[in-house]
Design a protein around this nucleic acid. Structure first.
Lengths: 216, 216
DNA sequence: ACCTGAACACCGTTCAAGT
DNA sequence: ACCTGAACACCGTTCAAGT
């Protein structure tokens, strides 16, 4: 119905721009995202973006929000509380595995409005596991910090960073380490095994805390 | 013995510049570190630094190295393997608590030559606990990722970020959470309790893994 | 109302020129 | 050998001018 759009430029709206920024960051990385570069991709002047976003930071935040949406981050509807909690944390990890260039950005804190319902859902699951009071808060914080922290460290700079981590490991000169890290593919596998092992251990700790009678 | 140094400028050497950069980052943050700003502090032209460092990244890396040194990061000489391992990880956490502006920088991987002996020491302690082969590598990776990841998430943007995290928590509207986060001081306390709880749980998992007969 | 183009302040980095 | 100063390319951001 649009009369004549000038040479295939999409309509500039917050969502369209955020999606383009998401694609750009996925392909070229966060450091490469420049307003003029993004404008070139969208067939518009880079400064036009300022009509829709206050500054670059707000744009990147919107792109991160879109990433959460398209990645299907959420709590699985079925299973025990523990299983559903692990499902949420694993869905977060999958999201950053697919969009590793957002891993670092997720560490700097902003007002999190969109994730508030995920937090509420996770808290409800921990309550179902028997946690309450200060124990509930500490357990939640432990899981959030573990999830965000490990995602950031494991995926920041991947896949190029795998070779760096592997080289650093072999520099140590330990025979067992040397054998495991013989090829680059094992770096991600070890990271994954370590993540799963840690996740199970932390949830064990949550269950133990729930079983203990001390709750402030 | 120096004949006449021009108005209190220290001799420009890698170590002196790195120390000044460390102090600057501690005070003003990593984003505020500009070569011209650092030059102003040191009474020299900003470009003079390029005589001693290849680029800004190399300078920041040197500052991070100095931070490790002055913070006394290391393995305590006495105790059980588990205690010594926890001592190392806690010393790392103390270092970033005192120098939070380095928390984010530690996530991007570089060739780690200086920390190689710490890695070797940690591996030796895990071996004393009975770990070997692939299990040893996975356990080590789990602890390293936990340490670096939690430090990054807990300290990036502190102390200003505490208020942001607290505001985000109260946004959820959960009564228990609301009560715990009544004042800002509790944010750091909850983070600390969560870190300790997770650390113990991960070391429990390492001991269990060592006790199991499956290795490799 | 929305976009363009020029402009501003500020980066990291290079390099010829000074001493 | 080491530092200075000018210069370059490139940022984010602002704003008057166009349509």
């Amino acid at each position: 119905m649009a009369s004549d759009r000038t040479r295939q430029r999409p309509v500039l709206t917050r969502e369209v721009i955020a999606d383009q920024a998401l694609a750009f960051i996925d392909e070229h990385g966060l450091e490469a995202l420049t307003l003029t570069a993004l404008g070139r991709v969208m067939n518009c002047h880079g400064t036009a973006i300022y009509r829709h976003f206050r500054d670059k930071d707000e744009l990147v935040e919107a792109a991160l929000g879109r990433m959460y949406e398209v990645s299907g981050v959420g709590i699985p509807p079925k299973g025990t509380p523990r299983q559903r909690l692990m499902g949420l944390i694993r869905s977060l990890r999958r999201a950053f595995a697919q969009h590793p260039n957002f891993a670092l950005r997720n560490l700097t804190l902003h007002e999190e409005r969109e994730t508030a319902e995920l937090v509420a859902g996770a808290l409800a699951l921990l309550e179902e596991m028997g946690l309450k009071g200060r124990n509930l808060v500490v357990a939640y914080q432990m899981l959030e910090t573990y999830s965000i922290g490990t995602n950031a460290y494991d995926f920041a700079g991947t896949p190029e960073g795998w070779e760096v981590r592997r080289a650093s490991r072999r520099l140590v000169g330990h025979p067992d380490v040397d054998r495991v890290y013989r090829d680059v593919g094992t770096v991600a596998k070890v990271d994954e095994a370590a993540f799963e092992m840690g996740l199970e251990a932390l949830l064990d700790a949550c269950e133990r805390l729930a079983a203990s009678r001390s709750h402030r």
